[in-house]
């Protein structure tokens, strides 16, 4: 069992067991099935890569959805 990874998700520090893919992150955040987009350290993480791409310690993650706006 490796050390947990520490990341920042939408501005809040979080800890997760490692290793952690983006699919697992979305499950951990109870966001599975929702239409969303993810950015890691300023770069898009395509949904097609969620299953394989792994988070790294110190990653800054943004998870966004569409909301009402003008």
């Amino acid at each position: 069992m490796s050390a947990p990874i520490r990341v920042v998700v939408n501005g809040a520090p979080r800890e997760f067991p490692a290793p952690l893919t983006f699919s697992q992150l979305i499950d951990e955040l109870h966001l599975a099935g929702r239409r969303l987009a993810v950015e890691r350290n300023g770069e898009i993480v395509p949904r097609s890569r969620f299953g394989e791409a792994r988070l790294a310690d110190g990653d800054r993650i943004e998870v966004v959805i569409a909301v009402g706006g003008g």
Binding site: V9, I65, G68, G69
Partner: peptide, 9 residues
């Protein structure tokens, strides 16, 4: 139009 915002975790 829609806005793009952080989701509430």
């Amino acid at each position: 139009t829609v806005a793009i915002r952080r989701t509430n975790i």
